[in-house]
Each structure stands twice: as structure tokens, then as C-alpha cells.
Design a protein around this nucleic acid. Structure first.
Lengths: 235, 235
DNA sequence: AGATTATTAATTGTTGACAATCTGCAATCA
DNA sequence: TGATTGCAGATTGTCAACAATTAATAATCT
């Protein structure tokens, strides 16, 4: 779970991308606590690099929504309220509907094989597996959906959602239920992609994200002050 | 149409934000042609600023999808193919469905008044109005939808879509039909937001974006090699 | 004492110089 | 002649020093 290779920092200069990946890992794995300040000089010293690349890395992570910056006041790791969870998941639902619909129209044997591989690894996860392993497989599956969708702007929209979802999932640790059910939940997605059409796929993702959200915040998501109602409903 | 104040470069350092805004305007208004190289030193000299802020501005515009960068090869203004148009509009549809659904649940008198103001200005646009003016009002209306939606991550998702749509609209110049019809099209959106529910609003945006897309690329959007089918269909 | 205004330390914003890499052209060799 | 290699110019990547701003503390005044 250490060298998780989810480097979404492509097309940045080399050092900035490296710094961004390491800091992202630190945030996702909780080594940097929510609210904690992220100082340029500190990071630069820790990673044996000057402040230039560190600044670019911070800008990227800020665009990814993992840290917040204020002029002359530095950056700090984001703190996720119930409202933030609602925002991330409502946006994810809207975006992943499109991803699933397109993926259903563009499935290839290669993607299907990769999905089956991920599903097999989910099923065979030993009970003592760490949360990070379960999360990694979960995200790996959804990455394949976006890959199948073949939509560059959709990928770039997915990146920040993915990072923030990653933070949630690694923080909450109701891992037992999660581990046992995620295999069958994701297999249902694979099936609808292979056998169903775009409309069925869009409807399936609605159920899936709803399940994921409920799993995450079973109690207090619907009692938020700022985000009361279900974000989107139709059928 | 010169000092169009659509500065989406918040929370960047001061100089970087200024440079980003100016370069964005140059791209949107066609002063920087698609495919044209964007050199750091050149911009820095033109704007009497060092390369540091220019680099940050370029990074932002790259995240916004207006320019593409390659390591050690610099940046160039993006060229929009039919596939790109399809990507932008399919993504916009997915995102704006959420925006409209939420806006329908959260309309305030203030937002409604602002919308009516924009609509009045659309209706009263003189025939000799420039394309940029029509486009500015169009975007101003949709900005209000996102404001009503009250969803920070949705705003950040809208920013790059908005920029790229802006490029399209200012380039294509079938302005007469556009100018005459945009008022009533947007008034229909306002009406459904005020009178309808989230489901009706989501359905209305589907029609609206479909209309916008057809207006933009009446012929060749559906004959693309890489993006053949309608991205999402349900009802 | 309480509030208001200097002062200072810490941190970010900006700059110009230097290093690494790419592109195009010319010289060389089969 | 044609391809390959080496060189020069241009451009981006990185760095360390300097300037601007903020936040916290101490000093001052009423």
C-alpha cells in the first residue's frame, strides 16, 4: 500500500510531479492531518528540492481539492465536512453517469479483461487486508470505467473527485462490510457495461454511488444545513 | 467586450492571476490563434513581469484546457477538433444537469432578479451588437445557474468548461440566429427553474445544450471518428 | 487594566541567473 | 545521394536570494 502508483500528475515538470505524488500520498494516508499547514520551505527541505517545484506541486494539489491556499497565508490540508462529502458524491454521480454511459458503448475485450482481473483480486482479498488495499482496488475498477469512456476531459474531471474520494475511503474504516460487498457491487457494474446499454449503465451507477455514499456516511449526510435535499432524481 | 470581467483565476498569487486573465482573454478573442506557441519569456517581457508568475498562469490555463503543455517543449493554444467539441458539450451536459437540478431546489429572489436582468439585456441587444456581447450574456446567465446551485466543486468543474465554450462561441459567428433566439431559450430555463422541479430542470438543460451544440456545429459533430454516438440518452 | 499601535519573526510572492533538454541545421561518412 | 552525428540556438526546468505581506508579540497611551 506504499508505492500506490496513482500518479495523476502527468505533464507537470518532473520534480513538481514527484513532490505532488508524495504529498498526495501523505494526505491520503493521513500522514498530513486535515487542517495541517503545508509550508513550502518545509517540504522543500524534506524532499531535497527548491521551493519552485514545491510551489507547482501545491498548485496542482490545490486544483485537485486536497489543499486550500490563501494569498500570503499558505496552504493547509482540506477538512471534509458533511457538506463536502455531499458535494463530492453528487458531483461524482453526475460525472460518472456520463462515464458509465459512454463506457457501455465503448467496451473492449481488453478493458473487460482488466475489469475481470480487478474483480478477481477483490474476491480473493484476504480478511486481513488493509483498508488501503480495498480502496486501491475499488478505485482501480472505476479508473477502468473512465478509460473505457475514452473522454479526455472526463478523465481530468475525475482526477480531483478521485483524490477526494480516496481521502474519505482511507479515513473511514468500516472495512469489513466494505471488503465483503465491494466485489459483488462492482461485478454488477461490469455486467451492465458488458450486457446493458448506456441508459442501464447510467442507472446502475446511480445505485452504486448511492450505496457508496451510504456506506461512507450512513447517518449525518442528510442532516447537513447547507445541502439538504437529494441532488438529482429522475427515472 | 474588452474588460470582460470573467476572472476565474481566484486564489492565485496576484501577478499570476493577472497574467492568466489577460492570456485567457487573448485566447478567447482570437488574438492568440489555435496551435500558436505560448512562450514564457515572451509573455513575461510583454507584461513586464518575470517568468515565475507567467509559469503559474500557464499552469492554470493548462488546467483550464485552453493550452497544452509538454515537458521541455513549451505550451501552445489548444486546437479544437469535432471530437473536442463533442467532449466539451457532453461533459457540460452531465455537469449542468446537476447544476440545474440543484438550482431548481435553491432559487432565491436575488438570483431570479439577476436572471431577469440578464434576460432583459439579451432581449434589448441591438442588431449591431458584437458576437462577444451575445456570448457574454449567455455565459452570464449560466453563471447564475451555477451560483444558485451553491456547490463549490461544481463551480470549479464549470470553470474549464466555461472557458472552452467561450472559445467556441467567440470563434463561430452565426450570430444573427444566435442573438435572436438566445433570449427565449434562456427564458425557458429561467421559467423551469422558478416553476418546475429538479427533474424538469434537468430535462430542460438537456434540450438547451442540445440546441447549443446544434447551433455550434450543425453538420460534422456526429461524423467524428472517435466519438460516434450520442453520449447519454435516457427518458 | 484595556485597547491600540509599533515591532519583529515567519512565510509567501517575485525575480534573475544558471542548468537541462529539445529542435533544426550543417558537417561528416557510407 | 542519403542517412547519421554533432553542434549551436532557443526554450523550459530549477535554484537561491530578495521583496512584500501576514500574524503574533511587545510597547504605548488613555
Amino acid at each position: 500500500m506504499d508505492t500506490t502508483p496513482f500518479a495523476v500528475a502527468a505533464n507537470l515538470p518532473a520534480l513538481a510531479a514527484l513532490v505532488a505524488d508524495r504529498v498526495r500520498d501523505m494526505i491520503v494516508h493521513g500522514d498530513l492531518a486535515p487542517g495541517e499547514r503545508v509550508k513550502e520551505a518545509e517540504l522543500a527541505a524534506a524532499m531535497q528540492v527548491s521551493r519552485g517545484p514545491v510551489r507547482e506541486a501545491i498548485a496542482l494539489l490545490s486544483a485537485e481539492g486536497l489543499i486550500e491556499t490563501q494569498r500570503y497565508r499558505g496552504a493547509r490540508v482540506i477538512e471534509m465536512s458533511a457538506r463536502d462529502i455531499d458535494e463530492v458524491y453528487s458531483l461524482r454521480l453526475a460525472v460518472e453517469r456520463l462515464a458509465m454511459a459512454r463506457a457501455a458503448e465503448r467496451m473492449t475485450a481488453e478493458i473487460q479483461g482488466a475489469m475481470d482481473d480487478v474483480l478477481a483480486r477483490m474476491r480473493d482479498l484476504p480478511p486481513e487486508a488493509a483498508v488501503a488495499d480495498v480502496v486501491a482496488l475499488d478505485l482501480e475498477f472505476h479508473d477502468l470505467v473512465y478509460e473505457a469512456a475514452d473522454h479526455r476531459r472526463l478523465d481530468r474531471t475525475w482526477a480531483p473527485i478521485r483524490s477526494q474520494v480516496s481521502v474519505f475511503l482511507n479515513a473511514r474504516t468500516d472495512k469489513d462490510y466494505f471488503r465483503r460487498t465491494s466485489w459483488e457491487k462492482h461485478r454488477a457494474l461490469r455486467d451492465v457495461l458488458v450486457e446493458g446499454g448506456p441508459a442501464a449503465a447510467a442507472e446502475a451507477v446511480e445505485r452504486h454511488i448511492g450505496w457508496a455514499l451510504h456506506r461512507l456516511a450512513p447517518s449525518h449526510v442528510n442532516e447537513t444545513d447547507a445541502a439538504p435535499a437529494a441532488p438529482e432524481r429522475m427515472s
